[in-house]
Design a protein around this nucleic acid. Structure first.
Lengths: 236, 236
DNA sequence: TTAGTAATAACTATAATGCAAATAACTAAG
DNA sequence: CTTAGTTATTTGCATTATAGTTATTACTAA
């Protein structure tokens, strides 16, 4: 019997935007391309092909672990990109996922693989206008992204900005216990604008049900901030 | 040379949620399944496979035209579903798109194909909580959806509700000229709750730059409402 | 003990929103 | 020609949310 699988199908891949917020900026993991030079691009999002009878989520988990050694990370689907010609190897449809975690976790994962770099993501448009994003190295020089990955990173920033106010996604960038200033730093990095402190505090305490732990930050000079955590029912 | 295309890939399909608002309810096109009986489901979203070197957008246009005869319709990506076992024919990854148009346009398209029905979509959860949706026929009886299509319809409602306030997506359900009451009817149908008229007017005239045409509704009894249109710069 | 700094709280002004009523525009009937 | 009936549109007010400023508190370091 003839099956749809006997016809030439495009291949399906999963690409990951592995993210954290560090030093006041949104950062993403990019990977040096092995077969570079075919196009101009030298850097790309880490990814892998979806195997027959493997789920998209399994593929995300596999790619994430293969590249960074990390497990048990929050991820969610961004969008799917399928324009022919976007990959010079052939027709590849990429389902892109965001993987979000605290900076201290991701920095360890990136250190384990010399092909990976954790770069600053910068956009030239305000708010949720949309457009491409650039990946900047530590000196501020832009790294050229392969395929349509600059567009994908732009869509990623737009999505994060849109969800930040109405969902608890910002907390995925933080460890289980965090100060309110930490949350504000995450929001400011993603929105690329400074926010007024008291207004932000109140909005936060209203919208997401945070629980004050009573425990305070330690080690720093000056007055220590209180540590908060998400109350159980809000943790998705 | 060995290529990734020599390995068994899952097939990629595009499924469409073809939508309008009519008679105070959000409605979607569903299709009688040819090979029904394999699972319990008899109705599904119309779809088609993505051909090698064909783009996702081309596939959307093709499926839409093949099933309804319609062209030049607004569409946008919802999400991608790839759990193995969701389709009994084999491992199929579906990229789902929303296609949105005025009711009078869609009703004509559905009439052209006896396998299609335009059914009311109903959810049991408030706001943007999320969950499954049900498809109801004209008598209010639920029609059983095949595969994971009830989940997809639920995600669709959630997405529409989320975008309604912050994007001009609601206007895609309306012809180029419309009354403010028409816009309110679209919002009420999608949100499944009634809104207060003056507040809704103001929000609309602030957020989206509408232009009053000076022309008035004709034919109806009682005071005719003024017709508005989107001002050029807001039309996406 | 005291100065310095950041976290937190209190206060005030402004803007957004929700509700209720009043006015305007039209049809249809007397 | 007038009037009742119905819906569109505008207006005004009460309420709530939001932003910005200032004061207070808690801690470190000298």
């Amino acid at each position: 019997m003839t099956s749809i699988f006997d016809y030439p199908n495009p291949a399906t891949a999963v690409d990951l935007a592995i993210l954290c917020v560090h030093d006041g900026a949104l950062r993403c993991v990019i990977m040096r391309r092995e077969d570079g030079g075919v196009m101009g691009g030298d850097w790309a999002l880490p990814g892998g092909f979806v195997h027959r009878d493997g789920s998209l989520e399994e593929t995300v988990t596999r790619v994430l672990h293969d590249k960074t050694g990390l497990r048990d990370v929050h991820f969610e689907q961004l969008a799917t990109y399928g324009t022919p010609g976007r990959d010079p190897r052939g027709h590849v449809i990429s389902v892109v996922y965001l993987a979000i975690m605290p900076a201290e976790v991701l920095i360890k994962g990136v250190a384990a693989n010399p092909d990976l770099r954790l770069v600053r993501i910068k956009v030239d448009w305000p708010g949720e206008t949309g457009g491409v994003a650039r990946a900047l190295d530590d000196t501020g020089a832009p790294l050229h992204m392969a395929f349509d990955h600059a567009d994908i990173l732009g869509d990623m920033v737009k999505r994060l900005r849109g969800k930040l106010d109405y969902t608890p996604i910002g907390f995925e960038f933080l460890p289980p216990r965090f100060t309110l200033r930490d949350v504000q730093a995450v929001h400011e990095a993603i929105l690329d604008q400074s926010l007024t402190k008291p207004a932000f505090r109140r909005k936060l305490l209203d919208r997401h049900t945070l629980r004050a732990t009573g425990v305070r930050e330690s080690g720093g000079a000056y007055r220590p901030a209180e540590l908060y955590e998400l109350s159980q029912d809000q943790e998705e």
